[in-house]
Design a protein around this nucleic acid. Sequence first.
DNA 1: TCTCGCATGTAACGTGTTACATGATTCC
DNA 2: GGAATCATGTAACACGTTACATGCGAGA
Lengths: 180, 180
Amino acid sequence: MDIRTLCLGLLTMGDASGYEIKKTFEEELSHFYEASYGSIYPALTKLTEEGLVSCREMAQEKRPDKKVYSITPMGRLAFMDALSKKPGRDRIRSDFLAILMFADLLPARQLSRLIDDRIDHYRERLAELDDCHASQEETPAHQFVTGYGRAVYQAAIDYLEDNRHVVEGEALLSRASAAG
Amino acid sequence: MDIRTLCLGLLTMGDASGYEIKKTFEEELSHFYEASYGSIYPALTKLTEEGLVSCREMAQEKRPDKKVYSITPMGRLAFMDALSKKPGRDRIRSDFLAILMFADLLPARQLSRLIDDRIDHYRERLAELDDCHASQEETPAHQFVTGYGRAVYQAAIDYLEDNRHVVEGEALLSRASAAG
DNA sequence: TCTCGCATGTAACGTGTTACATGATTCC
DNA sequence: GGAATCATGTAACACGTTACATGCGAGA
């Protein structure tokens, strides 16, 4: 699913401007998708050209004008069609795990630091999901996805805490054998 | 971490050809990185030009010739340097979760199918990790990363099984209210 | 004054994928 | 005979990011 299709999908939930769509990406979607203005604005322009969304310009007081996009009936059809395709495989690209594959090359301190940071990072992400849960009325779908994120982050934290000794112990050992 | 750097890293574990590196990506790394020939071969060419790896051509009997790459001392330094940088954030792009955000737009049957397939998919991934564990002598680093994958997949499966009713129930409900 | 939030957009660039081109051998 | 594995490579393309360009209003 490309950014273009996802923008279309977000518009099924209500009209929005490019700026607001970007915020949605940063908030609700940030855990499993990313998008920058450089992809969102051109996507909206193209969707408009194709007749899948319509656009009206809104003059605002004390704010810049905004362009509010609405999905069209044709757009809804197109999105339903996209939803019916079987999903592509998740694309994951984890620097953290890539680096860990070479844990034996890292100084012990650096390795511990890396894992500490990652645990902190996941805790922050968990907190974000909890905020999200607290502040907004959520659809069951949204709740489900949020819960999924929580489950995965929690599993990651637990695993790192319970098993870090496997690599950290090794680092200590090779230091010891190098020293002695 | 780009593909180029990761190729360099794999060569710290032993000499290899482009073809073999591709296989490593498909096996050990497939759970958190992907790479095609179209990125691997040019990466190796560039690394060679930069003096970070060296290359010798091996004539083989009953097999095409192969080019075996070795990391150079300069290459090792460059890789250690890359490892010392703090990791970028994980890039995740999940069609599955994106579709789930719009679960209320999906027919109940399709939604159930989607979740069934995903659970199967994770079970397969788990099995791959178990094979990996069984078949190969693994470094502690490798074990650790493999275990991480297992923990996360298992958490995902458990979550989906325990909570699918949250979205599936909703689908049934909206069907019922539409019908009655 | 300076930074932050609101608001839109483009051009250059990076990075990687897909599809194509080629060809021997082995297993079913 | 046909598919799979081994083996390398390129060119066209897709897709998205980064950095830049612009500008007002509010609050510290």
